[in-house]
Structures are given as structure tokens and as C-alpha cells.
Design a protein around this nucleic acid. Structure first.
Lengths: 234, 234
DNA sequence: CAGTGGTCTAGACCACTTG
DNA sequence: AAGTGGTCTAGACCACTGA
């Protein structure tokens, strides 16, 4: 009752859509008709429709009308916390290595830099209740002023490591997720046997021009450690 | 120049944020000030601010002002196409099994149903250029009218299988992603050796009351097959 | 109290689509 | 030409925060 008029319009149309009274591709009644129906001004109707557009229920075609969206059921929201649930009791980060190196072919390829440019490599493990949960390797093109002091880098997130050079608002992060088998250095760092299944999350940090400014790989041990995602549509 | 006034306001404030002229937690100048600055009416200013709110740049506190958001750098958009890139050349879906069964403890637990309720089980593999890419198992509580005809179910997505009973607009999908080793039935279905690393995507379909209406597990073979996600912030 | 954001109105003009 | 959505105005009243 006390709710704003435009929210009543939102709810009314949402109900029509979820009850399948109107289906994807169908047109909504015109804005002028909605004005009469709800006895409100056109701006109020449009505010309600704007909410539905933002939430992915409808879209507009100028000169024609407002239409119900085909829901994109393949889109999910993934919450990937780079630092695990740090700052909690029993959580700890161990810094294994901070170095300036010449990039391997793979590193140079992923950071799109020539082989004579130096690269910072940071290797850490995340420990929970005494058990190593994840092994994290990050590569960042070297630049003056990059933090390489242990204290600064130990608890730093990927964006924080490059924040001096790039605004976090102008960065994009991309993930690739796959499975692999533990072996060699990775097994040792995670303290697992070779052949254990590992979840691999590859992170790439891009600047506003889509140029890589960081590349990292995280290995997660244990079948219990996984990621969760929720469908966007609500 | 020809762009609407409210978009000019959006761009101006975005630039201030990405250039870090104003930082997270800082206040934007008041709406009335923005009206004067840009020589527009308040509704136009508010339309611009609404865009910034939707895109996650700012938030409002009634009676106080508009403030720059702390960017949530842990949120990603994951595109998980349940049907793989089907309908493409060289792609094929093989239906291995459609059955009505009594649920195991695990199935009953995940679907939150008693053990005397029957369940449809659908097993499929996704084949690309003759290579089996994924093995898919889905469980759906049995109800009258559920499609169990091969033709109907072979190319059906999870939501389509339950669509007769539930509107896709009222459904939620949740994913859990982890790594495991191939073994037994899974190895055979994927035609890989035991001990191969597999990416596991567990899907749960929930109705509007958060009650499960479907549970599925997809196994992806091959180190090359993985998922990709992009940070939401733009 | 003056200032802020939240809601709403009753008009207006434009570009666009359709018959 | 009539109808549609997109933009915009110049007011208004409200509930809220802070001094």
C-alpha cells in the first residue's frame, strides 16, 4: 500500500511474466495505456519499466513498444574470492617466493610482453586449519614502484599489486576454470600426492585497453574445495 | 554532442571515478549542484545517477547524498552453456539412458524428497568431432506429464525438462564447480582412463520457494575444456 | 532548520515504426 | 498521420539526515 506507484507497476508486470500470462517476445501494453491503467503520469510508468529493463525482464524498441525478454539461462554470477576467506580464525597465507625473473615463453605470451622485459613472480599458499588449501602463482610485468616488500605483498590481492599503476575501476578480470592433476612443484607446494585432482583457476588482469597487466594461476586441492555460482535471473 | 544530457553526466562522473579524482566512499556533489553544473533539470540529473547506480559505480543514502562504491572485485559473470555449443557442425548429443528410479540417499538428499517418490534419471554425453566432451546426469522428481520420450528429452535443457511444472522465470539455478578423478561409470561414459582429471559442474534447479526441482552433474573431460568468467565491474 | 535524496505530475518535443 | 518510446522541464511534496 505504502509502496511507490512505480513498484506496483513493476510487481504487476513481473507477475504477468512469471505466471506466463505474457511470454517472451510478447509486447507489454503501451506506456500510455499503463498510465491510464495505474492512474499515474508517464514518467512514473517509465520508471517502473526502467526497473524491469535493468532486471532483464523486458527490453524496448523505440517506436514500437516494450517486449518480454527471452531469459538468458546460461548467465551466472560467480563469487570468486581471491584471498579465500582470509582474516578468519585458522586462516593463514604463506609467502613462498617473490622474485624478479625473465619471462618464460608461456609467461611472455600471457602477459603479451617481450622476453627482455622483467616480471615479478609471487608464489603463495593459503592455509586453513593447518591444511594447505590453495597454491597461488602470480606474474606481473615489472615497473618502478611495484611493491616487492614481503609485508606489502603477502596479503595483497591481484589488483592491489598493480594498483599503483592502474586504477582498479579501469581493470577487467577474467577467469578460466579447469581441472588438472597435481604434479611436481604444484604437488610439493600443496603437500599432496602426484595425481590428485586439482581445480585450476587462471586469472588475467586487463587494463582499459585490454592489455594484460597480470597473470595468475591458483590450484585448489581437495574435492571439497570448489566454486559456487548462481543464475543471474531473478 | 548529440548524445543525451544524462549520458554526459554519466560520462563525466565515470571519468572522475576511474581517474580516481573521487575515491570509494567519497560523496558526489549534490543533485541540485549537478543541475546547475550541467544546466539541466533535476530529473535529468537523477536519470544519469540511476545509470551509475545500476552499473555499480555509486549508491545513494537518502537525506545524505550519493557516494562512490567500493568496487566488488570478487564478482564475475559466468557463462555456462548447459548444452555446450550444440547445433554446431560436428556437435552431437547421445542419449544413454532415461529411466524412472527410486532415489538413492544422495539423490533424495539433493532433491529433498522422501525415498518413496520416484525420480527421472537422464544420462547423456556431448560429442564434438567424434570426441566425447562431457557426461551429463540429471535427476528430476517424477510428475505426471514430464517428458520421458526420447525425442523430447534428448536436446532438452534442464529448465526445459521441468518447464511444464515451473515457469522458467521463477526458477533459480545454482552451480558448484570442482575437480575430480575419472572412475567407473564416469570413465566409461566419457571413454577416458581412470585417474584422468575431470571438471565437475553440479547444477541445482530451485523453484521460487528455494525447493529443489532438479539436480544434475556434468563431467568435462580434457584439460582444454574449461569455463570462463569475466569480472562484472565495467 | 536548511539540505538531501525519493517520488510524482502534466505537460512538451523528438525520432522512430506502422498502416 | 497516428502511435510508440526517448528525452527533458519546472515545478511539487515527502521523509530523512545533520547542525
Amino acid at each position: 500500500m505504502g509502496s511507490p506507484e512505480y513498484l506496483k507497476i513493476v510487481e504487476a508486470i513481473k507477475t504477468k511474466i512469471t505466471s506466463e500470462e505474457i511470454k517472451p517476445g510478447d509486447a507489454i501494453q503501451s506506456e500510455n495505456l499503463l498510465c491510464e491503467e495505474f492512474n499515474v503520469s508517464r514518467m512514473t510508468v517509465r520508471k517502473g519499466l526502467a526497473v524491469l529493463v535493468n532486471e532483464g525482464y523486458i527490453y524496448s524498441i523505440p517506436g514500437k513498444g516494450n517486449y518480454v525478454c527471452e531469459p538468458d539461462l546460461d548467465l551466472y554470477t560467480l563469487h570468486f574470492d581471491e584471498m579465500m576467506p582470509t582474516e578468519k580464525k585458522g586462516e593463514e597465507i604463506r609467502l613462498l617466493e617473490v622474485n624478479v625473473i625473465k619471462p618464460s615463453y608461456e609467461i611472455g605470451f600471457n602477459l603479451e610482453i617481450p622476453e627482455n622485459k622483467h616480471v615479478i613472480v609471487v608464489k603463495r599458499v593459503f592455509v586453513s586449519d593447518g591444511v594447505i588449501k590453495a597454491y597461488d602463482i602470480k606474474y606481473i610485468p615489472y615497473y618502478r614502484g611495484i611493491p616487492i616488500v614481503e609485508k606489502e605483498i603477502r596479503y595483497a590481492t591481484f589488483p592491489e599489486m598493480v594498483a599503483k599503476k592502474n586504477s582498479i575501476f579501469a581493470m577487467t578480470k577474467k577467469l578460466k576454470i579447469r581441472a588438472t592433476l597435481a604434479k611436481g612443484e604444484v604437488s610439493q607446494s600443496l603437500d599432496v600426492m602426484d595425481g590428485e585432482p586439482l581445480l585450476v583457476v587462471e586469472q588475467k588482469l586487463l587494463d582499459e585497453k585490454d592489455h594484460p597487466i597480470g597473470w595468475g594461476i591458483m590450484y585448489f586441492a581437495g574435492e571439497d574445495s570448489g566454486l559456487e555460482a548462481v543464475a543471474c535471473f531473478d
